[in-house]
């Protein structure tokens, strides 16, 4: 086959998908921000997306914080900079690892679950049934999930930040002979509010992307059980990639601006 044609076809396919995702996301956001809202559905999603993700996000954060502290301590030792480990850990967690890891856990846990649930609803005609019952699937299914993820991922990130720093503190005090009070004081006096806030802004965007990927792939799932499986895989993979890509973009914008 003509290689130019193959490249052209895949570029066009990519652009078409990007356009569909953008339209879908815009429609979902519009439904999320204007009445009527389905508060019961929203509450259910806050629980499913936010509350029930707490254990997995917390566990990820504590181990990452601990490992990060060890790495920075040994690495910093090469140029006698072990003592600024608490500050580096705090910076790394709040600006980068807290939001990104929370988002990745959500990509695995939540966007897969959303894609599977909505995909199964598509396969069993439940989405068609919504339409025939005069209910907009975007308002009933998509908007509550987008909104719940946008609002709860920053909260999860705040928890991850705290637990991550605590993980570093645990290692530092238990095996690296740091003074517990001094560690906390160093972290606290060094951190600027923007470090935390920029991470929380990232988290809100990640939340939108993760829920959007689950909703989009589930909504357009076709081909029965296999189709739902495919939708789930695509949701997780694309959510993870979008988290990393948008993380870089936002970091570069934030670091230029401030």
């Amino acid at each position: 086959m003509n290689p130019v044609r193959a490249v052209g076809r895949s570029v066009l396919g990519l652009l078409r998908t990007a356009g569909r995702v953008a339209l879908f996301g815009g429609k979902g956001l519009a439904a999320a921000l204007t009445p009527p809202m389905f508060l019961g559905q929203f509450g259910r999603q806050v629980l499913a997306i936010g509350y029930f993700s707490l254990p997995v996000v917390g566990l990820t954060a504590v181990f990452t914080g601990a490992a990060l502290a060890l790495n920075i301590y040994t690495g910093g030792g090469r140029f006698n900079a072990e003592q600024i480990m608490p500050q580096i850990v705090a910076l790394g967690i709040t600006r980068e690892l807290g939001p990104v890891l929370a988002a990745l856990m959500l990509a695995g846990r939540v966007s897969a679950a959303i894609a599977a649930e909505i995909g199964a609803m598509r396969a069993t005609e439940q989405i068609d049934a919504l339409e025939t019952l005069s209910t907009d699937p975007f308002r009933y299914l998509i908007a509550p999930r987008l909104l719940a993820a946008i609002l709860t991922l920053p909260l999860l990130t705040a928890v991850a930040d705290t637990i991550g720093i605590a993980g570093g503190w645990l290692v530092a005090t238990a095996s690296l002979n740091f003074n517990p009070a001094l560690y906390v004081q160093n972290t606290w006096s060094f951190l600027q509010s923007w470090d935390v806030v920029s991470g929380l802004i990232k988290a809100a965007v990640f939340g939108f992307l993760v829920a959007l990927m689950g909703c989009f792939h589930g909504y357009y799932a076709s081909g029965g059980a296999r189709g739902v499986g495919r939708a789930t895989t695509h949701a997780v993979v694309s959510a993870a990639i979008l988290v990393f890509a948008s993380d870089y973009l936002m970091t570069s914008v934030f670091s230029r601006g401030l």
Binding site: A129, E131, S134
Partner: peptide
Amino acid sequence: RGAERRDLSREFGMLFQSAALFD
């Protein structure tokens, strides 16, 4: 489309092949 369509569908009822109940 949209709201007009959903208003019209108030006149309709549908029994789906798989029943399509919300589980």
